[in-house]
Nucleic acid binder design. Structure first.
Lengths: 250, 250
DNA sequence: CGACGTATGTACGATATCGCACAAAGGCAC
DNA sequence: GTGCCTTTGTGCGATATCGTACATACGTCG
């Protein structure tokens, strides 16, 4: 792909006031984020924070017996490493690249300095953090009450919102790891969606054919999270070039 | 009960630097928190923040169909109303008193002012928020992977840590609402624990008889959350006058 | 083109939880 | 103490997901 990358592709960076943005830009380092790479390990120190642009990163918790569950997903709307400015330095979760791409990284120290100035940067990061909290809370609710198929829909939509495409490169096995269910469960759910004409997939590629109907099939959890991100970060409503629950039909 | 109440019974308040504490104290208002009271409604404005002392409050999300799930629990270690200083003003969840008692409340405006001074108060509140985030994340994981019985153990221990007693006033019906499972499921799990001699209960009263064994029966989620609270808020390690995973056996 | 590794499809019994229905018992009010 | 309401106990069949095993299909690489 012959794309040019700019830091503004990350919505959080793009929303910074000009002065702060200019101050940070020279220190932003474009880095590849290959599939499966662990940006942070559970309990590890954070050398950098990351601003994904064309990649998606999952926060997930891996249990003692190896089972895992996704807690939240971060893409071009956000930042990885919030525990840095929240004061804890580390978290018990891992951050794993779920969809390969690139992003920008910044030395932890620099972000912390910027946060501690206490101005718009701080307020923006805190609002983002609150949106992330909503996503985690809704993940808990969804895990409790909704079927694998509904959760798959939610997961697809949340992921698509964080890229700017209809297509995902992602095996069912990986999705199963994220959702914390069996791979066969994902196969069955995805099969249903494909038969219904909502998606089409082949070997690690998933294409959404009918997003409006996908949004009808998804549980309320998706809309709750999306609304909250839009509300809290309305300076830069999430990319959604196609269809959206929020839009009224013309 | 003939107890005297002081604001220092809330660990977060107790951990404030003397100057800040003294500034806030005159504005702290002791309020009763009766069972079932909703401190916040989903999406509602926050007039006050609350610092529970002898009460426990659940953050829970109620779905369109009426089903519910607890997202996190807040007691004398914390504060209700974090969205105030996180910048969102509201959240999609409700806050409901789960165990009756008292707490202190403070006008939102005053806490916001204090937060915006940016000193130790801010850092403390943010660290608390990170601990709360961990609790939410672990709730999501636990909902996904653990049995009702394990979750009941976790819930009991988290609740006890937030009071200073071995006893809870709580019907199985309410616990079921919190965990987002059927009441019968709680009855069965509680029955198992009682037969095993870990707890004893009768009509809305649950007494923990053997905490060490309860801590053996619980899933890892409890320890993850507890460790994180202790780590992040170590100026005031959580009340745990009896037995604890953290302690080594003598 | 063929082989091999990975991804996906399918089947089947085991298990946990659900949804519902109703029985039993505890405790409070009169 | 008696009666009544709430809480807890129990017993189903229905359902979703699990765990395991194996079959098929895709696509890349030699």
């Amino acid at each position: 792909m012959l794309t040019t990358h700019t830091a503004k592709q990350n919505h959080l960076l793009a929303a910074l006031p000009a002065a702060e943005f200019d101050r940070l830009v020279p220190h932003l380092e474009l880095v590849p984020m290959p599939l499966g790479e662990a940006l942070y390990e559970s309990g590890g120190r954070l050398q950098h924070v990351y601003f994904p642009t064309t990649s998606i990163v999952s926060l997930l918790y891996v249990m003692e017996d190896g089972a895992s569950a996704e807690i939240a997903v971060v893409g071009n709307e956000g930042i990885l490493g919030i525990s840095l400015f929240m004061g804890g330095e580390t978290t018990p979760s891992r951050a794993v690249v779920q969809s390969a791409g690139v992003g920008y990284r910044l030395k932890s120290q620099l972000l912390k300095q910027e946060f501690n100035r206490g101005g718009e940067v701080m307020r923006l990061l805190l609002r983002y953090t609150q949106a992330l909290i909503t996503q985690m809370a809704q993940t808990a609710v969804c895990n409790r009450h909704h079927s694998v198929e509904q959760q798959l829909c939610r997961w697809l939509l949340l992921s698509l919102d964080r890229l700017s495409t209809h297509e995902l490169t992602m095996t069912q096995e990986l999705i199963a790891n994220m959702l914390g269910v069996r791979r066969e469960g994902v196969t069955e759910a995805a099969g249903n969606l494909q038969r219904a004409g909502l998606i089409r997939y082949r070997r690690g590629q998933i294409k959404v054919l009918d997003r409006p109907r996908l949004e009808q099939a998804v549980c309320e959890c998706y809309a709750v999270v999306k609304k909250e991100f839009d509300r809290l970060l309305s300076e830069f409503p999430m990319a959604d070039p196609l269809h959206s629950i929020a839009q009224s039909r013309t």
